[in-house]
């Protein structure tokens, strides 16, 4: 009976719609952060070490922000306006399927944005390394998953645009306070503590050394554990809220 796992079928559904919007997506999520990076590069005349510092930070940040945004808007639309979740549940899918597929989808396509920035940014800065990119990806992926799951927690309680758009400014703050631009130690201790609450921070903390082929097992263990724990907590919360919302 079962031919393909149902979350995969959902992912296929998402890919059908996505392929039609690929150029816009690439423009928005790859080109725009790239322009920022380019601006920084020009304005501050980044040297090699600074570039090696910035590129992985931008990868994680761009991917996770894209995951968050596409969740709070895309998943909100599917839940409220389009009634898609309800229609999928009527077609034998479970709340787990719906949640997993939407989050995986939002996170994966955002991951491509991160990869795109890594490739283009590395090329622009003259420090393109394929091994580095490859090793940076797990941090990018996990941070995106956590960001998308957090977005789902918000969406599960939202009824309209205004319920989610209030979280948009947070993205800008996270951009600054996740360690994209400067090492954590540059900030006061209270701020440092706040920074550790963000998935993007932990993503950067592993992806940056990984990108520069300097990742140690200890660092990897700590930050991957935190990211996985965040994913677990957000998943449980999102599942609970979404079930309550969908199954009345």
């Amino acid at each position: 009976m079962e031919r393909y796992p149902r979350p995969l079928i959902l992912a296929y559904r998402h890919s059908l719609t996505f392929m039609r919007r690929l150029p816009i997506f690439l423009g928005m999520y790859v080109l725009v952060p790239l322009i920022t990076l380019y601006g920084l590069h020009r304005g501050f005349k980044l040297d090699d070490t600074q570039a090696a510092f910035m590129v992985p930070g931008f990868m994680v940040n761009a991917a996770a922000s894209a995951a968050f945004i596409s969740t709070i808007y895309g998943s909100l639309m599917r839940l409220t306006m389009q009634g898609s979740y309800q229609s999928w549940l009527a077609a034998t899918l479970s709340v787990h399927h719906v949640l997993q597929a939407d989050v995986l989808w939002n996170a994966t396509r955002s991951t491509f944005a991160g990869l795109g920035i890594g490739i283009a940014g590395g090329w622009l800065m003259g420090n393109l390394s394929f091994m580095g990119l490859l090793f940076a990806m797990p941090g990018v992926i996990l941070a995106s998953l956590a960001a998308s799951l957090l977005g789902m927690v918000i969406v599960s309680r939202a009824y309209g645009f205004d319920d989610v758009s209030v979280y948009e400014p947070v993205i800008a703050a996270v951009f600054v306070f996740s360690g994209v631009f400067a090492p954590v130690t540059y900030y006061p201790e209270a701020v440092q503590w706040l920074m550790t609450l963000q998935p993007i921070y932990h993503g950067i903390m592993v992806s940056r050394p990984a990108y520069n082929l300097e990742l140690t097992w200890g660092v990897a263990f700590i930050h991957f554990s935190v990211l996985l724990a965040m994913c677990g907590v957000f998943y449980a919360l999102a599942y609970r809220l979404l079930s309550r919302r969908l199954i009345t």
């Binding site: 059908l16 719609t17 389009q82 309800q86 077609a91």
Partner: peptide, 19 residues
């Protein structure tokens, strides 16, 4: 609650896959 992101025939096709 048809899928506005898909075409008419894709709506049926994807729904069929779910089943």
């Amino acid at each position: 609650n048809l899928d506005p992101d898909l075409t008419v025939s894709e709506n049926l096709f994807v729904y069929g896959l779910f089943f």
